[in-house]
């Protein structure tokens, strides 16, 4: 089976700062993978490199057997941004945001048709936000905001979904709802990569975990990833890694 995502030798620098170094990664369809790493470990950069937002200095990225640019044109990847990257005061409704998932299928003016409205309504229903479609996006709770963006990915009919810190600032109940939703999406053969530093949610959420600290420290089962010695390396408690912290 070809991997949904295959990354090899990926290195990304921001000027002097090396954000990712020699990252190799393979993700398969139908699985949820947790991407674990502390602040500044390169999680967002990894997402952005796979989306083609930041240009890699080295390395290759294949998405569903295609180059990243081809995958974008096919709308293969949906992205749920981290909360800090969204202007929550922007004057758009929940419905407007989810409709943005359909844009690549629409004509030059992006005027939605009946099929698109139906897809948006269905996606909103799936994430249990049907009551809130006309709310301004910032007038939702933290968990509802995340679900609105997940709905956008569902409306996009993307086979791959990246979620950057979806549990940050989200209460426990919403977290459980999002976990259940992501499990359902994986059961539909989607590939899901979730960055988080919420380790408690990990066993319920993920089939697999990746520990990232500029390089991939570990990729494998969740239980192995959660072993104290793995976590110590990932969160920089190991004295040998101290210098990379600052």
């Amino acid at each position: 089976m070809t991997a949904a995502i295959e990354v090899s030798g990926l290195t990304v620098r921001y000027g002097e700062i090396v954000a990712l170094e020699g990252v190799d990664l393979r993700l398969e369809a139908g699985r949820v993978t947790g991407l674990i790493g502390m602040n500044g470990s390169g999680k967002s950069t990894l997402f952005k490199a796979m989306l083609g937002i930041v240009r890699p200095d080295q390395g290759e990225i294949r998405i569903a057997g295609r180059t990243a640019a081809e995958a974008r044109r096919h709308g293969t990847i949906a992205y749920v941004p981290q909360s800090e990257d969204v202007d929550w005061n922007f004057p758009v409704s929940v419905h407007d945001v989810v409709m943005m998932g359909r844009y690549s299928r629409l004509g030059p003016t992006r005027r939605p048709g009946r099929v698109d409205r139906a897809a948006v309504a269905e996606a909103l229903d799936r994430v249990e936000l049907s009551e809130y479609t006309q709310r301004q996006i910032g007038q939702l709770s933290g968990g509802q905001r995340r679900r609105a963006f997940v709905a956008r990915g569902i409306a996009q009919e993307a086979g791959i979904m990246f979620l950057d810190e979806p549990f940050a600032g989200v209460d426990k109940r919403s977290e459980a709802t999002i976990v259940r939703l992501l499990r359902e999406l994986a059961a539909d053969q989607r590939t899901i990569l979730v960055s988080t530093h919420d380790l408690h949610a990990l066993p319920d959420l993920a089939d697999e975990a990746i520990l990232l600290l500029r390089r991939i420290l570990f990729q494998g089962s969740v239980s192995e990833a959660l072993r104290p010695e793995s976590l110590a390396r990932c969160f920089g408690l190991d004295p040998l890694e101290q210098d990379t912290l600052s």
Binding site: R72, F90, Y103, T109
Partner: peptide
């Protein structure tokens, strides 16, 4: 006015615009 929806997407979430091939 012709490109208003794309421009609004660009203003709100350029990363998503890029991710869907715009």
């Amino acid at each position: 006015l012709f490109k208003r929806r794309d421009l609004t997407l660009y203003a709100f979430d350029p990363v998503h615009a890029h991710a869907i091939g715009l």
